[in-house]
Amino acid sequence: MVWFKRKSPGLRIQKRKEMPDGLWVKCEGCGEIIYKKQLAENSYVCTRCDFHFKISSRDYISLLLDADSFQETDATMEAVDFLNFKDTKKYPERLKSAIQQTGLKDAIRIGHGKIEQKPVVFGVMDFSFIGGSMGSVVGEKVARAVDYAREKKLPLIIVSATGGARMMESIISLMQMAKTASRLARFSDEGGFYISILTNPTTAGVVASYAMLGDIHIAEPGALIGFAGPRVIKQTIGQDLPEGFQRSQFQLEHGFVDMIVNRKQMKSTLNRLISMFTD
């Protein structure tokens, strides 16, 4: 005999998609059904509630930089499995499927481009590549972007979208935090200007390194930004987390981001900031 019977089905796990296929998409924020083409024209921001859809590094490049101005550098850099890391899957297999699915080599692209004719060094992470995780490749590319901006005396912009350090590279992933921070320190000491853009999500090892070391921090609306993951905190303290915890507004109120900027105004904001600091 069954004593307790589930009246309604249990938790339904929905696979979140970056951008569902088909002509129409449903907004994760308000449930509005939006015509995909219209969404693209609106910078992948919901036309009704301003929910910011997760977008790819390619989308950020076309949204924030002048058309065809982006020159990617270090595009062939790839991760290697130096630890023979294996969990439920082997690391090389994870890498292979991520490369196949995304067409990217790793979770960041760097290069130089222009914002309203002004040259900048630009790095953009891609959450779709193993959760935007930072291993050797991300660390090295960020470091090189910083060095490039330093040599050319250009403003540096990095768009973060990441769950943190990549476990499959263990301690070496952790060391990328020190690597990127130390390069930024030298860049800053020499007067370099760095804008960090924090998108949904930007957490853990990246928040505790280059994402929080900008001269200016810009968050996209509604982005999850924090060091410890909400689930870990919830487990540790054994109580529910307040509404809006670790979201952009929370970070603004606590003084860790300078402004929250809608994706549609992001490029013009960058342009104004760069002019202020470089004119």
Partner: peptide, 20 residues
């Protein structure tokens, strides 16, 4: 990993130390 730690910027505090 606590609420107060996040409110006071755990990530920023660690990042700042790496930098400094």
């Amino acid at each position: 990993p606590g609420i107060g730690a996040e409110e006071r910027g755990q990530g920023e505090a660690i990042a700042r130390n790496l930098f400094e």
